[in-house]
């Protein structure tokens, strides 16, 4: 009998489950169409990477997931993003606040609130009306531990989050997103504003986090996509050119455009 490979063991233990699915998604900034007929699945407890040249619509697609586009007038969605394993709902028709309570986000530039480290993390619970100090303490500590930041800040929780270094600020933002126990966390080029060492620590963190949470990450760094993701979507000019498991996208792409991009011939 042939011994199953490591990859196969993983799939055997945990069958892939679709947590979300994008269906025929179009998106418009006013009259300009930025996304054209996007279809792709998001698998639970996996990292899905969005890659593609600058301006191809990666950020735009990512921000559809937590309805960030709703904040600005003139933006319009068409199609569906189904969320949920058993009874999927179209999150484009849900209340945006409800969506954001289930789908957190980490931004390109770290954006901690100019409040204490503690309050930065507790805020997601506070907006839901949670005031219980013990509960907040517990969540703050757990989130900081999960974001690999606890040891560095446990004695200075009252200091402003903005006093941390760039890499620490980004981990603080990750902790802030984790605190509300979301189904999905969106990362928009989370390391592009960081130095190489901070980048490595964030990447390691993302790899660990996928045990607990589903991750969708935009990156312009192909090495990063290979290091952290299991699935990859390649986008070009607002279209999804190719979606597959990361290994296949990088080793045997089907589309010529994908092959050109992952081999560095353009972008």
């Amino acid at each position: 009998m042939v011994k199953p490979t490591e990859e196969a063991v993983v799939t055997q233990q945990e069958p892939l489950r679709k947590l979300a699915e994008v269906r025929d998604l179009n998106f418009y900034y006013g009259r300009t169409q930025a996304l054209k007929n996007i279809n792709m699945p998001i698998y639970e407890k996996k990292v899905t990477a969005l890659i593609g040249p600058s301006g191809c619509g990666k950020t735009t697609l990512l921000r559809c997931f937590n309805r960030m586009h709703d904040l600005y007038p003139g933006n319009r969605y068409e199609g569906q993003i189904l969320l949920g394993v058993d009874q999927p709902r179209n999150l484009l028709e849900m209340d945006p606040i409800e969506v954001r309570m289930q789908i957190g986000m980490v931004f390109q530039k770290p954006n901690p609130f100019p409040k204490s480290i503690y309050e930065n993390i507790a805020y997601g619970l506070r907006v839901r009306g949670i005031k219980d100090r013990a509960l907040l303490d517990e969540v703050v500590e757990r989130s900081l531990r999960n974001a690999a930041l606890w040891d560095e800040v446990k004695d200075r929780l009252k200091e402003p989050g903005t006093s941390l270094s760039g890499g620490q600020q980004q981990r603080l933002c990750i902790a802030r997103a984790l605190a509300t126990d979301p189904e999905i966390i969106l990362f928009d080029e989370p390391t592009s504003a960081l130095d190489p060492i901070a980048t490595v620590s964030i990447e390691n963190l993302i790899v660990e986090l996928k045990e607990q949470v589903t991750i969708l990450i935009v990156t312009h760094n192909l090495q990063q996509a290979i290091r952290v993701s299991q699935f990859t979507a390649f986008m070009y000019l607002g279209e999804l050119v190719e979606y597959n498991d990361t290994m296949s996208i990088f080793t045997k792409p089907v589309e010529q455009k994908t092959a050109d991009y992952v081999s560095g011939r353009f972008g």
Partner: peptide, 20 residues
């Protein structure tokens, strides 16, 4: 970024304005 940060954890517009 500060506004979007607040919205991203589920704050309403009112909360974003009055807390941040």
């Amino acid at each position: 970024g500060i506004r979007e940060g607040a919205y991203s954890v589920g704050a309403s517009r009112w909360q974003t304005i009055f807390d941040h």
